[in-house]
């Protein structure tokens, strides 16, 4: 591996890891369902960057792009369905606070 490639791998890898930490922190700390979804989006951004970075370093950008596109499609479907669930929760509880739905049973 060339020195330039090692620098790119290190820089992009550290940035993606930091964004991954931000996403995990948000999922743990937030009580708002919409913000938790935004945290999930941030997590997938970091994973997308990791995939593209791996493809760039190994010279397989084509395969990495195919995987990233698949990830983007899955991400959108997850967000759409999750937003539907959030809106259903809001219509029942008039709130998107997770503490309001902790006692849901069945």
């Amino acid at each position: 591996m060339t020195n330039d490639m090692a620098v790119v791998l290190w820089l992009f890898g550290v940035a993606a890891a930091l964004v991954l930490i931000v996403g995990f922190y948000c999922l743990i700390a937030t009580v708002n369902l919409i913000r938790a979804l935004i945290g999930l989006e941030i997590l997938t951004k970091a994973v997308t960057l990791f995939i593209i970075l791996a493809g760039y370093v190994t010279g397989r950008t084509g395969l990495a792009q195919a995987l990233a596109i698949t990830l983007i499609i899955i991400e959108v479907v997850v967000v759409v369905v999750a937003v539907g669930v959030v809106l259903c929760v809001f219509s029942h509880n008039k709130s998107v606070d997770v503490r309001m739905i902790r006692n849901v049973k069945g």
């Binding site: 790119v8 992009f12 989006e41 951004k45 997308t48 960057l49 593209i52 970075l53 493809g55 760039y56 950008t61 990495a64 792009q65 990233a68 596109i69 983007i72 499609i73 991400e75 959108v76």
Partner: peptide
Amino acid sequence: VLMFQLDSPLAAVFELSVC
């Protein structure tokens, strides 16, 4: 923009339009 920098233009366009 980062994806363009990493030689992945098609995935970058997807990211911009969809995400």
